[in-house]
Design a protein around this nucleic acid. Sequence first.
DNA 1: GTGTGTGAAAGTATTCACAGCC
DNA 2: GGCTGTGAATACTTTCACACAC
Lengths: 210, 210
Amino acid sequence: MAPSRKNTIPAATVPRLSQYLRKLQEIQSRGTTTISSRQLADEVGTNPAQIRKDLSYFGEFGIRGVGYDVDRLIEELKKCLGLNRSWNVIIVGSGKLGTALALYRGFQKQGFNLIGMFDADSAVVGTDRGAGPVLSINKLEKFLNEHEVHIAVVTTPSSVAQEVIDRLVAAGVPSILNFAPIRAHKDKSVILRQVDLSTELMTLSFYLDK
Amino acid sequence: MAPSRKNTIPAATVPRLSQYLRKLQEIQSRGTTTISSRQLADEVGTNPAQIRKDLSYFGEFGIRGVGYDVDRLIEELKKCLGLNRSWNVIIVGSGKLGTALALYRGFQKQGFNLIGMFDADSAVVGTDRGAGPVLSINKLEKFLNEHEVHIAVVTTPSSVAQEVIDRLVAAGVPSILNFAPIRAHKDKSVILRQVDLSTELMTLSFYLDK
DNA sequence: GTGTGTGAAAGTATTCACAGCC
DNA sequence: GGCTGTGAATACTTTCACACAC
């Protein structure tokens, strides 16, 4: 039976589940209805045992001798990932990067509702960057008070990113996705993930230099 | 003695080195000249043993009882990461995201030279998005023939990303940073890293849903 | 026969704890 | 006394290999 005790699931498994899900949605749209762990592994660039092990933390979704039903597995993965509901998202920082993210269509598709964008620049406030009129950063706390925000995406300049993150945390936002190139501090209760161009480039540099 | 045999260095260490480097540069600009592994660990959000172990793969850079000289450690980390030289970078896909990345100032600062941007949209070709006039994607192979490109950053729509990556690989580009939300395939000789908004959001969703 | 689910084994990564040097 | 560098211990991940179900 599905244990569903998420504390016991390896951290490395979680991002892989999302990749399985996306690949399966692509496979579904091609009209394929059944897939083996080997086929999926080939598509996603891993090995079959990894997939079976990852899935086994959540339950038994396959049929021995046959494989997995694509529709069923998509539903199960959504459930595993908490995607059978919607999450409210805001973007703080409405520059090029924030706008690029706001316009990303896959956003809404998986149940992420972009309900607000913020910026400090009064020339930007009021314009539409993909999620209705951009609000002034001064209205951040008021907005957070009136709306339940689950995820805040931070795309501000790095000079103000830590301050913005502190304000988000203080206002009770439970998770943050930070694109500013700083190593943000936060208290343990907040879920923080960092996406960092300069780290990615330096990592490539390391392997190029071998 | 510094072993410098990069195959033996844990994959998880490499991105951490880049974070140590960035934090040290910040610390340097505040005028601090010496730092202990504990202080750096607090700043970067890890533990001192992790830092000492990571550094130990490359050599002995500290002084017992004292700590690390900030200037020296910065130089050593740059050497470890292959940053004591410059790398040529192109961006393929000059939409909002590509433009945002092109305008990111930290880019040039660490020795990454943005030498070209490409797009398929003829309305975009010829405009300046932060790295001189955008070139037509039709001229990609010609450009790669005439310039040594070390890193290609892919920010195209996902529908064409795999095709673009295949062309980059065929033309001999040794490393790729892919922002398109696809699981790209590639041959083993190419270094590929993926940055993926939807995986990040789904990972947050997983932990929010606990 | 085919392919899943899963303990056990192998392989990696992190943390501990202390000898050795300042 | 303080802090690094590192083997040893622990924790975590991936891979193997096979019993079991279809």
